[in-house]
């Protein structure tokens, strides 16, 4: 896992800052600037982390697994937490004690109808009940096991649901793969460039960071 302390130290080294002490302005020999705050450095690292996380999520790299929030319980009509792209999967437990099943997407109107089951049009059982007649063992109600996630709201028919999704934003840097340390360091240096800075080193570091990241994402294995 990535080491925030190591990244911070490397960033300070690369910008040629003369010391690392909390809250104190640091002189940069790289830019000749005296106004690099600790806060600015940590902010640059956070932004670099977000850029790296987004690039990883956009790719097909196995590194995405670091950002998977797996099997998160969610209530009907609850807001879906911030995530990248589509939900990876929705698993629904049709009735209490049942085996979970892969949810199938339906329209919001359909989900509302399934839950209401007006005039028992979908059968004698409610969406979160087991069908207990005519079978040797319980099976889910006809209208259970469906969901809709349009507009960022989770609606489903069944007893309970869990979702899996990619989320790089709330994943702490310390949970990022170690191989991303170096690209993040270079990206952070690049992001520390201020308006009017004449040094081209910041842009070079940013390019290096992007290149390293792209090389890493092309790899099949860690």
């Amino acid at each position: 896992m990535a080491d925030l302390t190591a990244i911070t130290k490397q960033v300070i080294d690369l910008i040629g800052a003369n010391s690392y002490s909390g809250g104190v302005k640091q002189y940069s020999s790289t830019s000749g600037d005296e106004d690099f705050l600790d806060g600015a450095i940590s902010r640059a690292i956070t932004e670099a982390k977000l850029i790296a996380g987004e690039k990883v999520c956009e790719s097909s790299s196995h590194l995405k697994s670091a950002f998977i929030q797996k099997d998160q319980a969610i209530a009907h009509n609850a807001k879906i937490p911030a995530h990248f792209g589509e939900l990876l999967n929705v698993v629904i437990t049709p009735y209490s004690g049942a085996s979970p099943m892969e949810g199938q997407k339906r329209s919001s109107q359909q989900i509302a109808s399934y839950r209401t089951n007006l005039d028992n049009v979908y059968g004698a059982f409610a969406h979160n009940e087991a069908q207990t007649t005519g079978f040797t063992s319980d099976i889910p109600a006809t209208q259970s096991g469906f969901y809709n996630d349009d507009n960022g709201i989770m609606e489903f028919s069944g007893h309970s649901a869990t979702i899996s999704y990619l989320d790089f934003q709330s994943t702490p840097l310390t949970d990022y793969p170690t191989v991303l340390e170096v690209p993040i360091t270079h990206l952070a240096v690049g992001l520390l460039q201020k308006d009017g800075t004449v040094s081209e080193k910041f842009a070079e570091h940013y390019s290096i960071g992007i290149s390293l990241l792209q090389d890493e994402l092309k790899r099949k294995t860690a």
Partner: peptide, 23 residues
């Protein structure tokens, strides 16, 4: 018959095929 007909139509919403229409 009702749930079987709804299944044949791939479980539409009751706003798409109302219980009255089904009857």
């Amino acid at each position: 018959i009702k749930p079987k007909v709804m299944r044949l139509w791939e479980l539409p919403a009751t706003t798409e095929l109302s219980p009255h229409s089904l009857k």
